[in-house]
């Protein structure tokens, strides 16, 4: 489903975030991406959603070369992907329900279908009772779950999560991880980055390790 071929990313200041990365991820797979902060995990995830463009190499998703995508085509790529952002990127001027509604509004869903989808997504992450709450009143863990609900509400085939357990305690982190596992079980391809190796335990899923922009095999 996703293929990286000789992908490098060098920032204008000379910093090399990705160095000649080659990898491929199958449809329906669940993959962990580990490494210290600054190892290039975020850059790799962002380049999948065309938020970052590689300096060289090709990234293909379902046969489409992301590096050569026209700017006008990028929104339609992003609609097939659910992204859980490291810094959540919630909108604080609207309630929980409307935050989750946003991707559906963007994808032209009709109001009725959209409302039931939003409730289904909120139910999955256990926030159904807080649909009227404003994000500012939510705890860190609740905000993370809200972000997950927004990432899956439009039923993407690919889910990307950047440090989803970042600042959460271990119990909360396990909760979130089991959520991702359940999405993967219904066929969604899931890529999760984490610097916290303890979270992986004895996972049977593939683990990719990054160090200073290089993929360790």
């Amino acid at each position: 489903m996703i293929t990286f071929k000789n992908v490098s990313k060098r920032y204008p200041n000379g910093y090399i975030a990705l160095n000649n990365i080659n990898l491929s991820i199958n449809a329906g797979e669940m993959v962990f991406l580990t490494g210290h902060s600054g190892a290039g995990k975020s850059t790799l995830l962002k380049s999948i959603a065309a938020i970052e463009r590689p300096t060289s190499g090709t990234i293909t998703i379902s046969g489409q070369n992301i590096a050569q995508l026209k700017p006008s085509a990028i929104p339609f790529l992003r609609r097939t992907i659910g992204i859980v952002f490291q810094d959540h990127k919630l909108l604080f001027d609207r309630n929980v329900f409307d935050n989750v509604l946003l991707p559906l509004q963007i994808s032209n869903f009709d109001t009725h279908t959209a409302a039931s989808r939003v409730r289904a997504a909120l139910d999955k992450v256990g926030l159904l009772k807080k649909e009227k709450a404003m994000p500012i009143t939510l705890s860190g863990g609740e905000r993370q779950r809200l972000c997950i609900a927004r990432a899956v509400v439009h039923r993407p085939t690919l889910l990307i999560a950047d440090e989803p357990t970042g600042n959460l305690d271990i119990a909360y982190g396990r909760d979130i991880m089991s959520m991702f596992t359940s999405f993967n079980q219904v066929g969604v391809t899931v890529i999760i980055s984490t610097h916290d190796a303890s979270l992986l335990g004895n996972t049977q899923h593939r683990v990719l390790s990054l160090a200073q922009g290089n993929l360790l095999v």
């Binding site: 946003l102 991707p103 963007i106």
Partner: peptide
């Protein structure tokens, strides 16, 4: 600004 940035991140087109 935030709303625009986030909307772009989750696939909003320019006309939207």
């Amino acid at each position: 600004r935030d709303e625009i940035e986030i909307s772009k991140l989750i696939g909003a087109t320019d006309p939207f």
